[in-house]
Nucleic acid binder design. Sequence first.
DNA 1: GCGACAG
DNA 2: ATCTTGTCGC
Length: 228
Amino acid sequence: MPNPPLHDWHLAPREAIALQRQLAGRVERDDRLDEVRHIAGVDIGFEQKGAITRAAVVVLAWPPRSPGVFDVVEEALHREPTRLPYIPGLLSFREVPAALAALDRLSVTPDLAMVDGQGIAHPRRLGVASHLGLWLDLPTIGVAKSRLCGRHGEPGPARGDWTPLVDGPDDEVIGAVLRSRVGVKPLFVSPGHRLSLATALAWVVACLGRTKLPEPTRLADRLASRRG
DNA sequence: GCGACAG
DNA sequence: ATCTTGTCGC
């Protein structure tokens, strides 16, 4: 009772925003993250013009078989009627419920999860990756393809080059703009829950294959969008 | 009032 | 996110 609920997915926008403000302070930082054996990739897709939400999760074995090549340990998919429309800043209320259902179908519990979207690089520091991590008390990393908020310069041209993403009047560092592949638009990486930006960046770079997105997110994206 | 705006 | 053909490039 003393703790505010992390799971009321039926709040009006005004209440949802208030809840995000309360939860944001609980997104601790910097776990050691030793002994990681399973890394999950989480992403949501839609069917029938958005009427159906499709949550996908792919679990990869760590360490990789060879640099950038991972064994898929398990995959899970969950479909359900879409609950809310897309509202910038309130993405978790639209996607997290379905993501939780997909994660429930796993037989293995991942040690780390990469989520398609922002972590703390969010107006109230509680993007979808942070919210999901807080809910499951699981280390998470936000891996987004574009910017929600914050300011940044252009990262260097080499793979692995990055520049900080800052926000607020005091230039608070909320994430990093990472060049995951030469000649391609950069990725927006931010801590979700229980890890620092440096740790988040290290894991994303370590999971990079030959494409723009790190393998966990790339494979989950493929399953969510019913391709592959 | 105007512009910005993860997926 | 999704709707969609061809096309440029390794």
